[in-house]
């Protein structure tokens, strides 16, 4: 009886270990040849920015943060990379969960900057475009009637406010000063009235153009409509008849 139990237990264990082995082999093979694992760059935290983003001057703006997957999520950031003299480019990278959590409030903010002079780098989340404020190569401070000093870009860089998604926002000297203090204190700065960041008005306005809101209820409606629709009506007929009836019986 004892022998029979031992043999039964041993064969059961053998099966379980074979199953685990096969699962591991499958995972290893899939991982080594997975396209997404290879193609998409992984950023663990902000320290990697310096190696990943080359060139000067450069500003990296976080324009989207999303996660995919069922139980084990993969986290992504979409960055808008603004070079001083090139067309801005978009890049999507995989990130760590910690980094994703850390930047939940930083949508629309510049996460990395490298200046042209001295190649100074900074990874404290700041409103986009800060790199160019105060640099007289790109613009100048101008007094307005209220006595306030505002920043105006030179003619060649007139498009910068649009690129940064500022909208109607015009930075003043107070904004510039406060942001410098925040950088010195290594603290994030979301604008004088918190206009920037995930909850900021300017960011919300800027990002509304890039995202198409598609509610879950609309998705359900779309699926139901597709599922319940009669296939032999109007445009469907023309399409399907040309594709399917190519056999010997069609005229």
């Amino acid at each position: 009886m004892v022998d029979y139990c031992d043999v039964y237990f041993e064969s059961k264990m053998n099966r379980i270990s074979t199953y685990i082995f096969l699962t591991v082999v499958y995972l290893v093979l899939s991982m080594s040849f997975s396209h997404s694992e290879k193609r998409t760059f992984f950023i663990r935290n902000e320290k990697v920015f310096s190696n990943y983003f080359k060139g000067t001057p450069i500003t990296v703006i976080l324009v989207d943060a999303f996660r995919t997957g069922f139980l084990i999520k993969t986290y992504y950031h979409k960055y808008k990379i603004i070079h001083g003299f090139k067309v801005p480019e978009d890049k999507i990278v995989r990130i760590s969960k910690e980094f994703w959590k850390k930047n939940l409030k930083n949508l629309g903010m510049s996460l990395f900057r490298r200046s042209e002079k001295g190649h100074l780098e900074n990874v404290i989340p700041m409103p986009p475009g800060l790199l160019y404020l105060g640099d007289h190569f790109y613009g100048r401070w101008k007094y307005i009637n209220s006595g306030e000093k505002i920043w105006v870009f030179h003619r060649g860089y007139k498009h910068f406010p649009d690129v940064f998604g500022w909208g109607d926002f015009v930075p003043n000297f107070k904004f510039f000063k406060k942001s410098k203090i925040a950088i010195e204190n290594e603290k994030s700065f979301y604008g004088l009235h918190d206009e920037f960041g995930t909850n900021g008005n300017i960011t919300k306005k800027f990002l509304v153009d890039t995202k198409t809101p598609f509610k879950n209820i609309d998705k359900v409606k779309h699926h139901l409509k597709k599922f319940m629709s009669i296939p032999w009506t109007s445009s469907n007929t023309k399409k399907s008849s040309s594709q399917k009836n190519s056999g010997v019986l069609d005229e």
């Binding site: 199953y19 699962t23 093979l29 899939s30 040849f33």
Partner: peptide, 19 residues
């Protein structure tokens, strides 16, 4: 090459799913 690789991978996955 990828085609063959997918075949092997699918067979392996089937062996995992079948039980």
């Amino acid at each position: 090459l990828w085609f063959n690789f997918y075949i092997v991978l699918k067979i392996l996955l089937s062996v995992i799913i079948f039980p």
